[in-house]
Design a binder for these strands. Structure first.
Lengths: 348, 348
DNA sequence: TTGTAGGCGTTATCAA
DNA sequence: TTGATAACGCCTACAA
């Protein structure tokens, strides 16, 4: 009952008078065994308390069923939600996940990748963005990125353009005189940039007055608060009597703005409409539920895993993906209307 | 440059005219090699573009450097934060983490554990609570739990009792006439129950009127809202003119209550003081920053990993932990005073 | 339906 | 300082 040495196929073979091969077959092709043999072996397994050793199996057949994941951080809920959904696909595909958090440090992320490769991962899902897709593509294993620069590898992204477009459209429909988009300075090559162009295009098409304000938001709550306070000051001066529709780059920021206004006025003033991005709990649980553009995180994750697995499978039968153009999947965002734009129908 | 077959020690040995053994030594005991030999091998590695294969190494020496993790869910930020901190210890100890999310389903968690064991993990950190510590202790590998029932295994927990005590003390110090604790029905065997007893003991010691309200909170935001609305109604009836100090089981719930009151009165009424638990972003970013009892998540995680690693090391040299009583570490909580109890000093 | 023999890429144990 | 050889535990032809 103590620390006995592990039971192997050899032990079972000896115990049952079969060969190791037969034991192996019991696990991999049970139907090629005589029913009686199956029973004998199955009983022996219990009797000897056999525990399988996948490391040995991997060495023999090369299939680790490992997928590596690199996440940049966990502060933004988006990442923990995606990770959650990815991990949940274990039930579907059986792949196990080796997870690393990139420290925004290219050098260490490189090391993580080497480590992952040394464990013979069969594929990789990358959410971190410090390593270029070109470098990733040279890794010679199936790779899928989520919401990051993806020129040379497969990817799954939210249709940010449509998201930004719909946010603007929603605000315009509610008769806002001026639309404001607040965002941090964004690299045009990453998918999130689409939110900006979508917003702008919608405004232009409809001839609505608009402005994109790039500020160093998203560094700290205090910083955001200060920046938004200043912005509110500016807005009240510049667009005094006008109805203002404000689209923020994420729900946390939207909630911060909302709180700011609510504290100032004891309510969300009627000349302010707010839309966030992500459909994170922060938007639903805000003091006034915030309209938002929801990323379909479950689908992002599911498609990402599906895509890696597809490539892994393809590579197992020949090498059909060789030189093929990377696939870029796009997931539709969902516009969620809440009180911050619709007003409070019932109870006010 | 295409899909060449992998380079092994054999290739390097042939290329350098050393034996496989020497190549192996280069990696494991470089100092036992002649400096010249080291140079030769090191150059060969580059020239041949060797990539190490840890699976083979594991099979040979039995050390996977894997630690398994089972997290119950990712909705509560606590878990993603702990996971984050655990993963970050890679830099310190070099252990890699295989992560599973338990679906609140005992059967599947059992399967996860089997899967983890089959990959020869060297230890396990468990945050999920569907599997009893007794069952876990029979797994014969180092195990550490975090904030869950831990009778038969090592654990790291926040000192919930002190947390509850300090929350109550804070409210009492501010002259509250009655203290209320809102929590979901809690199993007395889990650490979080300490919050309740700590709260009660403090109230009793000080002779403060108090009440613990067990409600089915934490299932959904809408549900919480309804429950809290009802509670507020009750409180206003029962404790009309009194100053009420409310301690909630987590920050999200505290924030929901705060929003409710703020919407109702346009501010946080002066006869309400609020304290949450966790020091999650929700408390800092609330419309009125919420005082809270902070779990030192970084320390919880760091100690948990240290504890598994310690056991793993101990087991490698003999088996000194055999039969020893499990270690239960306790981390002090940190009381964080914010506006929801301190009032607004500056700007009001 | 079952068995034999060799291999997967390292490390460990003796020798030299 | 270096090598030969046997593990590690399983899988996969090929054979019977």
């Amino acid at each position: 009952m103590e620390g006995k040495k592990k039971i192997t196929f050899d032990d079972i073979a000896r115990y049952t008078n079969f060969s190791k091969t037969t034991i192996s077959r019991y696990f991999n092709n049970p139907d090629t065994l005589a029913p009686e043999s199956q029973r004998i072996i199955s009983e022996a397994l219990v009797k000897l308390d056999y525990k399988e050793n996948k490391v040995a199996r991997i060495l023999a057949n090369g299939q680790t069923e490992f997928i590596g994941i690199i996440v940049p951080e966990f502060y933004h809920r988006f990442f923990s939600e995606v990770l959650n959904q990815i991990l949940s696909t274990y039930e579907t595909y059986g792949y196990k996940f080796l997870v690393f958090v990139g420290n925004r440090n290219e050098e260490s992320e490189r090391r993580y990748i080497q480590e992952l490769l040394s464990y013979q991962i069969e594929g990789m899902i990358v959410l971190s963005h410090t390593i270029s897709s070109e470098v990733l593509s040279r890794l010679q294993i199936p790779i899928v990125t989520i919401e990051r620069e993806d020129e040379h590898v497969c990817s799954v992204n939210t249709d940010n353009y449509t998201g930004g477009y719909r946010a603007a459209a929603l605000l315009a429909e509610h008769g806002c005189d001026v639309l404001i988009h607040i965002n941090s300075p964004t690299d045009p090559r990453i998918p999130a940039y689409g939110r900006i162009t979508g917003f702008q295009d919608c405004c232009r098409e409809r001839g609505v007055m608009h402005e994109v304000m790039f500020r160093a938001v998203d560094r700290s709550h205090e910083g955001d608060l200060a920046i938004l306070r200043e912005i509110v000051g500016t807005l009240e001066q510049t667009y005094g009597g006008k109805k203002k529709g404000i689209f923020l780059s994420n729900d946390t920021l939207a909630s911060t703005l909302l709180n700011l206004l609510f504290r100032k006025y004891g309510k969300l003033p009627e000349d302010y409409l707010i839309v966030g991005f992500d459909n994170s709990p922060a938007s639903r649980e805000a003091i006034v539920p915030i309209s938002t553009v929801g990323q379909q995180v479950d689908r992002l994750a599911a498609e990402a895993v599906r895509l890696v697995v597809e490539q892994i499978d393809a590579r197992k039968k020949g090498r059909p993906m060789r030189g093929r153009k990377p696939v870029h999947l796009v997931i539709d965002p969902v516009l969620i209307r809440r009180e911050s734009t619709e007003g409070c129908s019932a109870e006010c």
